[in-house]
Structures are given as structure tokens and as C-alpha cells.
Computed example of a mutant assay.
Amino acid sequence: MKASSAAQGPEPKLFLPSRRDALVLALAGAALLGTALFLRYGIIQNTPLGLACEAGRGGFVCRLRLAVILMFVWNVFGWGALIAAAVQLIRPNVVVFGIGLVFALAGLVLYNTGAAALAIALLLLSLARSGPEAP
């Protein structure tokens, strides 16, 4: 026989960001996505700018270009997203979810697609976890 659901106790509340948190996450994601797309297509893949930077015309844009290139070569975006997603999976929190989302979106746009996609899958799985206990 099946045990009644009342005898088992209340079902745990799943982790789910509030409407305000979801709006902040969406705005942060959209802002980061726009910034990452500008970095990729406006600075990194801009051939005249790349040639000028290689010719020795140093400046803020060339240093930024080099820093972003080194970050995606070292998989900083992918590893950052994976670490944040693993922490989020273990202990759900809106801030950690946002950090993982931002790193994952940057990784998807800036050439760290494998790790970033895995991080997004872990972030989605974290939505099925129980939320933090109410005090």
C-alpha cells in the first residue's frame, strides 16, 4: 500500500529565485552577453585592430584584447562557470547562481563552450534542488 503524503511530511521547497532576483539575473545576463559579444566581434576579431596591436600600438584596448584572449586560452570563463555551478548544485544560492550564469554566458560567447555548456546544465539541475532552509 502507498503511504499517504501527509504521513511523509511537507515536500521540501525547491530553489527558485524570486521575481526580483530573476529580473536582476536577466538584466545581468543581458548586459554580460552584450559586453561579451562586443569584446568578441568588436575587439578580438577586429582585424585592423589586431594588426595595430601586433604592430606595437599599445593602448588600453590592446591590453584589454590581450587579457581577454589569455583568459579564454586558459579557460577562465569555463572553469569559473563550472566551479560556481558545482557550488550552486551543492548549496543553492541566488548570488552563486548569478555568478555561474555570468561566467557561463561569457564562456559560451568567448570560446569556452564545452565547460560553459556543462555549467549551464549543472545550473539547470540546481533548480531542482531544495532551497536554503528558512530560519
Rank of each mutant, 00 (worst) to 15 (best):
M1R: 06
K2Y: 15
K2N: 11
S5N: 04
A6F: 10
A6W: 08
E11P: 05
P17T: 00
R20Q: 15
R20L: 15
L23H: 10
L23Y: 09
L23A: 14
V24D: 10
A26V: 12
L27D: 05
L27H: 03
A28K: 03
A31Y: 02
A31D: 04
L32E: 08
L33M: 13
L33F: 11
G34Y: 04
T35I: 14
T35A: 15
A36Q: 01
A36I: 01
L37F: 13
L37P: 02
F38M: 11
Y41W: 13
Y41D: 13
Y41V: 06
Y41L: 11
T47I: 09
P48N: 00
L49I: 02
G50Y: 00
A55V: 01
A55D: 08
A55W: 02
A55T: 07
G56Y: 06
R57D: 15
R57H: 15
G58Q: 15
G58M: 15
G59W: 05
G59N: 07
V61K: 06
V61P: 00
C62K: 04
R65S: 08
L66I: 11
A67Q: 07
M71E: 10
F72K: 03
V76I: 09
F77T: 05
G78Y: 02
G78E: 03
G78D: 00
W79T: 11
A81N: 00
L82P: 08
A86R: 12
P92M: 05
N93R: 10
N93G: 07
V94Y: 02
V95M: 14
F97K: 05
G98V: 00
I99R: 01
I99E: 05
V102Q: 04
V102N: 02
F103T: 01
A106C: 06
A106M: 02
A106G: 10
L108N: 02
L108K: 03
L108D: 01
Y111F: 12
Y111T: 06
T113N: 14
G114E: 14
A115E: 12
A117C: 09
L118V: 15
I120W: 06
S126M: 04
A128D: 14
A128Q: 14
S130Y: 09
S130V: 10
G131T: 09
G131W: 01
P132G: 09
P135W: 14
